[in-house]
């Protein structure tokens, strides 16, 4: 532990990694809370995979991978909407079709565009190679995501809980949906370096699900999800640097352990108390 803190003070790259992964943990928790309550967990997985061709094309064009990734993320969100609304294809199938196609395209393009980054780095992340420019990018994305959620919290809450009422009183629920897709894409792009394409979905879903088991208030769920996301990042980064393990994978496993603790011990929704309550009520009968 002490050596980790000493390393932190000594090495700039470790500081960058820590700050970046904390920010990513926070925004993944926040956006993840909306994603899981809207039943769009699969959508998070889809967008994270589908940004791959965008990353490849950005390398080819010599521009920041952010632009290409955001472009493909939004194309995917719209594409999924078009396929599921204009045919009898159900939305989970539409998601599967669209994202695997983009992911396949991305795999080919990345191998052609091999320059600074290789495929493994994008798939699994490499938080220790975060450059200051990436950190700034993550910071900007985090500020945007948190600001939008703060400003439009009322509208986001009601359209997530009861989209019909939201539409009935005149909220543009379709645009809110695409707005969330844009935030999701931004969050995904920010997470590429920390946990990589494949494991982004875990950072979106797992801390938010942990929080979901612990509270009956949505704003509290968002706060807790952000906290668990950040906590997973810090602990995960510490373990991975101490034992020289893949950082993204360790962060995800830490998030999973936190989830398991909540799953078992949550006072309201954990399996332990639930089974004790059932036993009690059986005994009283």
């Amino acid at each position: 532990m002490m050596s980790f803190i000493a390393d932190l003070q000594q090495y700039q790259f470790l500081q960058n990694a820590l700050i970046t992964s904390i920010m990513v943990g926070i925004i993944c928790g926040v956006i993840g809370s909306f994603i899981i309550m809207r039943g769009m967990a699969l959508m998070g997985d889809a967008i994270s995979h589908a940004v791959l061709p965008g990353v490849a094309i950005s390398y080819m064009l010599g521009i920041n991978y952010f632009y290409g990734a955001v472009f493909f993320g939004i194309v995917t969100a719209v594409g999924i909407g078009v396929v599921s609304q204009n045919s009898r294809i159900k939305s989970d199938s539409a998601i599967g079709i669209v994202f695997s196609a983009f992911f396949a395209l991305g795999v080919i393009l990345i191998s052609k565009a091999q320059t600074a980054t290789d495929l493994t780095q994008i798939l699994f992340g490499s938080v220790l190679s975060v450059r200051p420019s990436d950190m700034i990018m993550t910071l900007i994305i985090s500020v945007i995501v948190l600001l939008v959620v703060f400003l439009f919290y009322k509208e986001l809450l009601i359209s997530t809980f009861d989209a019909t009422m939201a539409a009935a009183y005149g909220l543009p629920t379709k645009w809110i949906h695409y707005g969330i897709m844009v935030l999701l894409t931004l969050t995904t792009v920010a997470s590429l370096q920390t946990v990589g394409v494949i494991l982004v979905v875990a950072m979106l879903i797992t801390p938010a699900s942990t929080a979901y088991l612990l509270t009956n208030k949505f704003s509290m769920m968002i706060t807790l999800a952000a906290f668990f996301g950040a906590l997973s990042s810090v602990i995960g980064l510490y373990i991975s640097s101490e034992y020289n393990l893949e950082s993204g994978a360790v962060i995800v496993l830490v998030a999973t352990i936190l989830f398991l603790l909540a799953f078992i011990f949550s006072p309201k929704h954990g399996v332990l108390w639930r089974s004790l309550r059932t036993k009690k009520s059986k005994a009283s009968i």
Partner: peptide, 15 residues
């Protein structure tokens, strides 16, 4: 507008 009860997610974290 009051929706049908079956249209609501009753597990939503709201009191």
């Amino acid at each position: 507008y009051v929706p049908q009860r079956s249209d609501i997610d009753w597990d939503f974290p709201i009191v």
